[in-house]
Write a protein that binds this DNA or RNA. Structure first.
Length: 494
RNA sequence: GUCUCCUUCGUCUAGUGGUUAGGACACCGGGUUUUCAUCCCGGCAACAGGGGUUCAACUCCCCUAGGAGAUGCCA
């Protein structure tokens, strides 16, 4: 039987690292096995549902370049792939369970359940959860509740004794006493919608899903799901509970740890290649040394056997490092295309870029490429080219161990060389080398170190002690503006 | 509280009875460099603890401790 796996997100929020990791692992497993990857929308929570999250799902995966073989937008022979469109099915199966005595209607109000829960928490009762109040209602009692117009939920009868075991590819056999399983979970809500547990089992069965790969937070639901498969007399799929992704403090990754939604990562300028590569390495490793994998590699190399059991901490710094690596692998043209939107958003470049701006961009790419970690870094890194920089403190102009007077001297010494840069050679590396030679000569002649000579000029031109290479920056800025800035620096010191 | 899962450098990990316990990120130092970054070199740093099993345990078993997750008409 060929492998069929699914990613089944609920459109109640933005796609986040954890969900995407689960999707990726499912996808890579399917592809490595020559199987199919299916997308199913689990929109049974109509209170938290939002169109925006649904759109975000599509946007995120299209950005990642991950495609499913079957899904709402693609079709397929097992559709519909949206649970709200499979509504009737769930009701029928719930009724079937009731008829067979495997489930029952419960008329308890949310208020009663809430009160029950707080009381249990207060008393630290050994067993928490529903007290099975309605499990054995007489027909008369049921009729009474019905008469009151209470809309019941349908609950599953968890066996009172015995135990349930299921096999997990990663974890082995997971055993649990039935008395420890959440007492009689809700299958059908009072609004007629199924809960995750019911819909999930029914759909996975009908969609012929062979492997369930989901985060370990679902592990406690495993026995319940097995019991449900047994109740329907269906064969359960193979389970594999993936280690969870944690924040720095070891808790489940969440917003307070930093960005978690892919939308945030995209906005900051992470590349899909970096995200895919890094995320795939949380809880999975190929061998003892290889760490670069692209999508195609993982489609071939991913194996369940290499999965780790322990949860992994999401390391933003390592992701940054990967991103820098992937930025450097980009061609100048590719990087330029990716950077333009950031410059446009900041208002520094027109849409589309003017001819002059385009030329400037071409010159910019080579000098920023190995300095970028995030694409968005381009904005602060090049701010001096687009806006006034005169706000820097005068002290910044003064090199270490020097004073204002000698700095003034340095600026006056350096200015003529800059002014004549065009005469030293054509724009580009040749000019850089000639200028550098000129400054080295000046250094020997004047006794100032090369760094001491260039630092004040750098600050004068860029407003910062840290910048892209000075000479190239001056060419991009324009010689005229650069000289004006040097003159302003001189005034600042005087 | 109860149940379940987990436990190798700060972090991600390699390791399947005999290794100087390897790699990467981070960090620290050095080199290249007009600053920064890149790049190169070097360093730091781990088998949670205690019992077994065995000639031999990071590797197998048990206990303890710690961590996490679940305990919803959310998924």
């Amino acid at each position: 039987m060929s492998v069929r796996v699914r990613y089944a997100p609920s459109p109640t929020g933005l796609q986040h690292i954890g969900g995407v990791r689960t999707a990726l692992f499912n996808y890579f497993f399917a592809k490595s096995q020559g199987g199919d990857f299916i997308l199913r929308i689990e929109d049974t929570d109509r209170e938290r549902y939002s169109d925006e999250s649904l759109q975000d799902l599509y946007d995120t995966f299209s950005w990642l370049g991950i495609e499913w073989d079957e899904g709402p937008d693609k079709g397929g022979e097992y559709g519909p792939y949206v649970q709200s469109e499979r509504f009737d099915m769930y009701r029928e199966y719930a009724d079937k369970l009731i008829a067979e005595g495997k489930a029952y209607k419960c008329y308890c109000t949310p208020e009663r359940l809430e009160a029950l829960r707080t009381e249990q928490q207060k008393d630290k009762k050994a067993h928490q959860g529903y007290d099975r109040h309605c499990r054995d209602l007489t027909p008369e009692q049921q009729a009474e509740y019905e008469k009151q117009g209470i809309k019941p939920v349908v609950r599953f009868k968890i066996p009172l004794d015995g135990k349930t075991v299921f096999h997990d590819v990663l974890l082995g056999d997971v055993k649990r006493k039935n008395s420890d399983i959440s007492p009689d979970p809700v299958l059908l809500k009072s609004d007629g919608f199924p809960t995750y547990h019911l819909a999930n089992i029914i759909d996975d069965h009908h969609m012929n899903i062979t492997h369930i790969m989901r985060a370990q937070e679902w592990l406690p639901s495993g026995p319940l799901h097995i019991l449900l498969y047994q109740a329907f007399e269906w064969d359960p799929p193979t389970y594999c509970h993936l280690p969870m992704v944690m924040g720095k403090d070891g808790q489940k990754l969440s917003k307070r740890h930093g960005s978690t939604s892919l939308r945030d990562f995209i906005a900051k300028g992470y590349l899909p290649e970096a995200i895919i590569n890094y995320i795939s390495l949380i809880g999975w490793a190929y061998d003892d040394s290889r760490e670069f994998f692209d999508k195609a590699d993982l489609e071939k190399l991913f194996v369940l056997e290499k999965l780790n059991k322990a949860p992994g901490v999401f390391d933003y710094k390592k992701l940054d490092w990967f991103n820098g690596q992937y930025i450097r692998k980009l061609s100048d043209e590719e990087l330029k295309a990716k950077i333009i939107p950031y410059l446009q958003d900041s208002g520094n470049v027109d849409n589309p870029p003017s001819e002059a701006q385009d030329a400037m961009l071409n010159g910019l790419i080579p000098i920023v490429k190995e300095r970028l970690k995030l694409l968005s870094d381009i904005v602060p890194m090049t701010a001096f080219l687009f806006s006034d920089i005169s706000g820097y403190p005068a002290e910044d102009l003064i090199p270490k161990k020097k004073d204002a007077a000698s700095t003034l001297e340095i600026l006056k010494l350096g200015r003529p060389l800059i002014e004549k840069m065009a005469e030293l050679g054509p724009d580009g590396e040749a000019q850089d080398e000639a200028l550098e030679a000129a400054f080295k000569a000046l250094s020997e002649e004047s006794g100032f170190k090369l760094g001491e000579l260039l630092s004040p000029l750098r600050v004068a031109v860029t407003g910062s002690r840290v910048s892209p290479p000075l000479f190239a920056s001056i060419r991009l800025l324009g010689l005229k503006t650069a000289l004006e800035r040097i003159d302003e620096a001189v005034k600042k010191l005087e």
